[in-house]
Design a protein around this nucleic acid. Structure first.
Lengths: 229, 229
DNA sequence: CCAAAAGTGTTGGCTCTACACCCATGT
DNA sequence: ACATGGGTGTAGAGCCAACACTTTTGG
């Protein structure tokens, strides 16, 4: 309770996090149950919370990832989306929220982090779009999806959704899943390799009754601007 | 003084505005003198202020434009840049700031709005880059310039820096000024016209001892996504 | 030997770039 | 008549999209 008290002076600023991952060629987001009667009763929403006076907005997102048991924040790539400041976005009181886009490779999640619990679940993004969400979270989701698709085409953002080593087919799945269109396999490989952002490794990945795939990694640790998919 | 009191409950959230215009093929920003001893004594910074509890961040920017006598906010195109939340960005107390990018056509400014006063001036952007600015305004300026150049290449953002009717040469100046490189006149015209976003008007513009130029306007009122300059 | 995904080249069309001169006007 | 910016076309290079078969492996 003393922790909550500590937050009160800053009660007007929150963060919200749209955390995406890709599993089985489908885009999932981590959602929570929001229970704030009388306005929101068991409604779906994104994880979030108040910024404390002693942390930046980015640190606040990291803390919330930890406190809610969502995911170890070191695994997550986070970027700011937009600050939402509509007067009535929270019907109880005036709350501004800095919305964040988060990406995590499903392969790097621990057993626990992959699990759905009564409080929080991995949900198919397309199922969220048809649903009423808490606060202005439908708008935030739309912004997140637009930003994700857009940044994917001119940065190496795909890195944040893949394990350290990955095959070109896995990389292609990231693109086809998010851009929602099929890409020509040969053209995709030529294009990606010509960008000179990947390094072939010694290892191969054997996943079924077929030829094993070459494993690659990104040359640079940071996400870079490229031209262009 | 009662107005300031009214702001206190929201003292932790401010807005800052980087307002650009183009004049004589050069990019200018509207700056103010910041006087907050002991930390900032007569330092240059961007206009800003606290968000009031009864307004959105966007409305706050519009109000500040008005109150500071910067510009009639109806003429300005405004987009959110990023929310700055570093703990020490304001050395006096914890202040988060939602930074905005604003664009206004110099031609549409009134006489008064064009004027420099002791409080506020139009300053060449390149002169600001070498200078120490208040708060984290150097970072905000860098973000604003990056965003401006980037959005110029895939949207019709140039519209926000031009009068309703303009010549293709004037449009080209917007691009060359912001992108800081020369464009081939013939290729530029072919490209722009092929995008089918402009409408030739009946009017011409006569500006000197040479052939008058055709005046164009944008077909759509809103700024759109295009592919690509 | 069958099923399944990995891996690989070529061609035609389109787009982009580079480049130089005539036009309409005011002085 | 001259100085000034407005306005226009073409050719070569490079890039992109469309397309199908062989390879390697496990079962």
């Amino acid at each position: 309770m003393s922790k909550i008290q500590q937050h009160v002076p800053f009660a007007t600023i929150a963060v919200d996090l749209v955390l995406f991952t890709i599993k089985d060629s489908q885009l999932f987001a981590r959602v929570m149950n929001v229970n704030r009667p009388p306005f929101f009763q068991n409604v779906t929403g994104f994880p979030g919370g108040l910024i404390s006076p002693s942390e930046t907005a980015e640190q606040s997102v990291a803390r919330i990832c930890l406190e809610r048991g969502l995911v170890d924040s070191k695994k997550v790539h986070i970027e700011q989306l937009r600050t939402m400041s509509e007067l009535e976005r929270d019907p109880r009181s005036r709350v501004l929220s800095v919305a964040y886009l988060g990406l995590v490779p499903f392969e790097e999640l621990s057993e626990v982090e992959r699990l759905d619990t009564p409080e929080t679940q991995w949900t198919l993004t397309k199922n969220l779009l048809g649903k009423k969400l808490a606060y202005d979270h439908t708008l935030i989701l739309t912004l997140a999806l637009e930003r994700l698709a857009s940044r994917l085409t001119y940065t190496t953002l795909a890195k944040a959704l893949l394990p350290k080593l990955f095959t070109l087919s896995e990389l292609e799945v990231v693109y086809t899943t998010i851009l929602e269109r099929n890409l020509d396999k040969r053209n995709f490989r030529k294009k990606i390799l010509s960008l000179n952002i990947l390094k072939a490794t010694q290892s191969k990945k054997q996943t079924g009754p077929h030829r094993p795939a070459q494993l690659y990694q990104f040359k640079h640790k940071e996400i870079q601007i490229i031209e262009t998919i």
